Amino acid sequence: MAAGGFCKLPNGTVVVALNLPYGPARVRVLVHAANRARALTRLRNLGLRAVYLRGNAEPPTPDEITAVLHHPDGLVWRTAPTADGVPATELWHPIRALLRRPAAVG
């Protein structure tokens, strides 16, 4: 289960944003797809089986939408903002970098 949200674009597609646990930290994953179900299926097909979107508590920001729309795969991630709201300063990474990166055991 993950906190997140979605935004429907004028062309009918959606951008889904999810905060997922990854080792001791959390990552923010963005997916561009035809609909919410397809976005979650894309993540499940990559091995993230227990991914669900409940509600729309944390929809993607305009900057996040721009980042995922300009990426050729339409699937990016970076470290999630901290609990006190400090945003991540790193750049967006392709999902392949997350899947091959070993999670730190804490």
Rank of each mutant, 00 (worst) to 15 (best):
residue 58 E to L: 15
residue 43 L to M: 14
residue 74 G to M: 06
residue 52 Y to T: 13
residue 70 H to D: 02
residue 80 A to K: 08
residue 25 A to R: 13
residue 103 A to D: 02
residue 10 P to M: 10
residue 37 A to V: 13
residue 103 A to R: 11
residue 102 P to M: 07
residue 16 V to C: 10
residue 72 P to C: 01
residue 76 V to H: 04
residue 15 V to M: 11
residue 101 R to Q: 09
residue 40 L to Y: 06
residue 3 A to M: 13
residue 83 A to M: 00
residue 75 L to S: 08
residue 98 L to A: 04
residue 7 C to T: 05
residue 6 F to L: 14
residue 38 R to K: 14
residue 92 W to F: 13
residue 57 A to F: 13
residue 27 V to E: 09
residue 48 L to S: 08
residue 32 H to A: 13
residue 47 G to A: 07
residue 6 F to D: 04
residue 16 V to I: 10
residue 58 E to G: 01
residue 40 L to C: 08
residue 51 V to I: 14
residue 98 L to K: 05
residue 34 A to T: 09
residue 57 A to H: 15
residue 105 V to A: 06
residue 34 A to K: 13
residue 44 R to K: 08
residue 1 M to I: 02
residue 47 G to H: 05
residue 51 V to Y: 11
residue 78 R to S: 01
residue 24 P to H: 12
residue 71 H to M: 01
residue 58 E to P: 00
residue 67 A to Q: 02
residue 73 D to K: 04
residue 61 T to Y: 04
residue 20 L to N: 01
residue 77 W to L: 04
residue 82 T to V: 12
residue 50 A to L: 13
residue 24 P to W: 13
residue 80 A to E: 14
residue 55 G to K: 07
residue 15 V to C: 15
residue 100 R to G: 04
residue 35 N to R: 10
residue 78 R to W: 05
residue 64 E to P: 00
residue 8 K to S: 03
residue 56 N to D: 14
residue 52 Y to V: 14
residue 99 L to D: 12
residue 21 P to H: 06
residue 87 P to K: 04
residue 14 V to R: 07
residue 81 P to T: 07
residue 57 A to R: 15
residue 42 R to P: 09
residue 41 T to A: 07
residue 99 L to Y: 09
residue 36 R to T: 11
residue 38 R to N: 05
residue 75 L to D: 02
residue 78 R to V: 02
residue 49 R to C: 11
residue 88 A to P: 05
residue 39 A to M: 06
residue 56 N to K: 03
residue 71 H to T: 09
residue 9 L to Q: 06
residue 63 D to P: 00
residue 42 R to C: 12
residue 29 V to L: 06
residue 91 L to P: 01
residue 72 P to G: 00
residue 17 A to S: 15
residue 65 I to E: 14
residue 1 M to G: 07
residue 93 H to V: 01
residue 75 L to Q: 06
residue 36 R to Y: 05
residue 42 R to H: 11
residue 43 L to I: 05
residue 76 V to T: 02
residue 106 G to V: 06
residue 21 P to R: 08
residue 72 P to W: 00
residue 32 H to G: 11
residue 72 P to Q: 01
residue 53 L to Q: 11
residue 76 V to Y: 03
residue 96 R to V: 15
residue 3 A to Q: 14
residue 37 A to D: 15
residue 41 T to K: 02
residue 84 D to K: 08
residue 85 G to P: 00
residue 77 W to E: 04
residue 43 L to N: 02
